[in-house]
Amino acid sequence: MRIRSPDGHPRRRPRGAGDAIEAGRADGSTTFFEVRETQPVDKKDFPTNKVYGKTDRPELRLITCGGPIRGGHRTDDTHQPRGAV
């Protein structure tokens, strides 16, 4: 997967609306997605329907986690904001 800013510069992760995400497909072709929204969310208030609900078109949803890592894993007792793109 490659991510680019609206002006075409490469990025390590999406930062906001307008960023382009290029994703390789199993058949060797490439598909493109444009970031429409980013939203920091709290673990206990995760918007399940918004993130996993049905859509009328192909969509790519990226979910990142925040908070401390202990023993190679994020702890369950932390409620650090997550990011949904």
Results as ranks from 00 to 15, higher is better:
10 P>A: 11
10 P>M: 06
10 P>L: 08
11 R>L: 14
12 R>D: 09
12 R>A: 13
14 P>E: 02
15 R>A: 15
16 G>R: 05
16 G>M: 02
16 G>A: 03
17 A>P: 11
17 A>H: 15
17 A>D: 08
18 G>S: 03
18 G>Q: 02
18 G>C: 05
19 D>T: 00
19 D>F: 01
19 D>C: 00
19 D>R: 01
19 D>K: 00
21 I>A: 04
22 E>L: 09
22 E>Y: 10
22 E>R: 11
23 A>H: 13
24 G>Q: 14
24 G>L: 14
25 R>S: 06
25 R>G: 02
25 R>A: 12
26 A>Y: 05
26 A>L: 15
26 A>Q: 10
27 D>G: 11
27 D>K: 09
28 G>S: 01
28 G>P: 01
28 G>Y: 05
28 G>H: 06
29 S>F: 07
29 S>Y: 09
29 S>D: 11
29 S>M: 08
29 S>G: 10
30 T>R: 10
30 T>V: 08
31 T>Y: 00
31 T>K: 04
31 T>M: 02
31 T>W: 04
32 F>L: 02
32 F>R: 08
33 F>D: 13
34 E>H: 07
35 V>C: 13
35 V>R: 12
37 E>Y: 12
37 E>V: 12
37 E>H: 14
37 E>F: 12
37 E>S: 11
38 T>E: 05
38 T>I: 10
38 T>D: 04
38 T>Y: 03
39 Q>T: 10
39 Q>M: 13
40 P>Y: 14
41 V>T: 09
42 D>W: 07
43 K>W: 09
43 K>M: 04
43 K>H: 12
43 K>A: 13
43 K>L: 08
44 K>L: 09
46 F>W: 00
46 F>T: 01
47 P>T: 12
47 P>W: 11
48 T>M: 13
49 N>A: 15
49 N>I: 08
50 K>M: 14
50 K>C: 09
50 K>N: 08
50 K>W: 15
51 V>K: 03
52 Y>N: 06
53 G>A: 03
54 K>A: 07
54 K>N: 04
55 T>V: 11
56 D>R: 13
57 R>E: 15
57 R>Q: 11
58 P>V: 09
59 E>P: 03
60 L>H: 02
62 L>P: 04
62 L>Q: 07
63 I>Y: 05
63 I>V: 08
64 T>I: 01
64 T>Q: 05
64 T>C: 03
64 T>N: 07
64 T>L: 04
65 C>I: 00
65 C>Q: 06
66 G>M: 09
66 G>W: 11
67 G>V: 06
67 G>P: 03
68 P>T: 13
68 P>C: 12
69 I>L: 05
69 I>G: 00
71 G>R: 01
72 G>V: 01
73 H>D: 04
75 T>G: 07
75 T>N: 04
75 T>W: 05
78 T>G: 07
79 H>G: 09
79 H>A: 09
79 H>K: 12
80 Q>F: 15
80 Q>E: 15
81 P>W: 11
83 G>V: 05
84 A>R: 06
84 A>E: 02
84 A>F: 02
85 V>Y: 13
85 V>T: 03
85 V>K: 01
85 V>L: 04
85 V>E: 00
